[in-house]
């Protein structure tokens, strides 16, 4: 609807190309950090696609991410299937899981959804461990791959670009408009003729699809995969914090949260590893009490205040 939409897309395309050149000049250490940033950017943007307009706080990222990783690991290690096939299977599985969760919980209020997603990764981890202990006899998978960090970086960058483009299309579609209305007042949304459950399930499925895809792509990097690692609940919380810290009013806003948070997070894990839990807590409180609309939301507020002041 906005005429500047295509300009935005052009700028993003240029930035993606520049980002793609980065591994050619950066050191291995920098590429490693860049890879993490790409991973969280993909997760946070796709998370915000659903949670931004609807205000449903999803903590299911770890579940999808872990599922994706596990499926790739299993396929490659036990059945010697190709990586490319397995990431497709993993992403689809993530989408299906998300659709099922969405159908069961999204008709209800936000609290049920948060509670459900909160324990989901933990439950899947328990189930997988149990299956492995009782039926498979092994606890983990060894994966061999020729990929190096820059390859993961490029694949994740491609995911970021695709998620962004998809978000851009959705924002300009009926579906995007429907989600904004749902986020404002779900009762009104139903009475103007929106199938609210369907809209939410579609978006949540998208989120699940991409989180599983990201988990699948980085799986070979672990070399040895165990359920206990890939389903670590931390990733869900980190994604929520990064996205909300940046803001969800713009497609690119989560990135504004991803970059600084990840740098601080890495520093804390390197220097004060025992305080990382405390730090997550402080970050949550910071979002609620200081930056309820994220950094980008705060900047937009300031900008409109300055404009009002002028006129």
């Amino acid at each position: 609807m906005r005429p500047s939409g295509y300009l935005e897309l052009l700028i993003v395309a240029v930035l993606v190309v520049l980002a793609a050149l980065f591994p050619l000049v950066g050191s291995n250490l920098h590429i490693g950090v860049g890879l993490d940033m790409m991973m969280f950017a993909a997760l946070a943007i796709s998370w915000a696609l659903f949670s931004g307009p609807t205000h449903y706080i999803s903590l299911a990222t770890a579940a999808f991410y872990g599922l994706g990783g596990l499926i790739v690991a299993m396929g490659m290690a036990d059945y010697e299937l190709p990586f490319w096939l397995m990431i497709a299977v993993a992403a689809l599985a993530g989408g299906v899981l998300a659709a099922l969760i969405g159908l069961a919980t999204l008709r209800l209020t936000g609290v049920y959804f948060v509670i459900f997603t909160l324990g989901l990764a933990e439950m899947i981890r328990n189930l997988v461990s149990w299956i492995q202990n009782n039926f498979l006899g092994s606890h983990g998978f060894l994966i061999f791959s020729d990929f190096r960090d820059q390859h993961y970086y490029w694949m994740l960058l491609a995911v970021v670009a695709v998620v962004y483009l998809l978000g851009w299309v959705i924002n300009r579609s009926r579906l995007g408009f429907a989600l904004r209305i749902i986020g404002n007042d779900e009762t009104v949304a139903r009475h103007v003729g929106i199938n609210t459950a369907m809209a939410k399930v579609i978006l949540f499925t998208t989120t699940g699809f991409f989180a599983a895809l990201v988990g699948a792509i980085v799986a070979p990097r672990w070399s040895y995969i165990e359920a206990n690692q890939v389903f670590s609940p931390h990733i869900s919380f980190l994604v929520v914090i990064m996205a909300l810290l940046g803001g969800t009013t713009r497609l690119w806003a989560p990135i504004v949260g991803v970059v600084p948070f990840l740098l601080i997070w890495n520093w804390i894990n390197g220097n004060l590893p025992n305080q990382s839990t405390l730090f997550i807590g402080v970050a949550f409180l910071l979002i609620v009490y200081v930056l309820p609309h994220g950094v980008v939301g705060r900047l937009e507020q300031l900008r409109s205040k300055i404009r009002e002041g002028r006129s």
Partner: peptide, 25 residues
């Protein structure tokens, strides 16, 4: 009520992590 729900979920999450961090130490 929805806005309060989201805020209180995030705030109490923050508190849970802080208490957890303190207990770890």
């Amino acid at each position: 009520q929805g806005a309060l729900e989201v805020d209180s979920i995030l705030a109490t999450f923050g508190m849970s992590f802080i208490i957890m961090g303190v207990m770890f130490s």
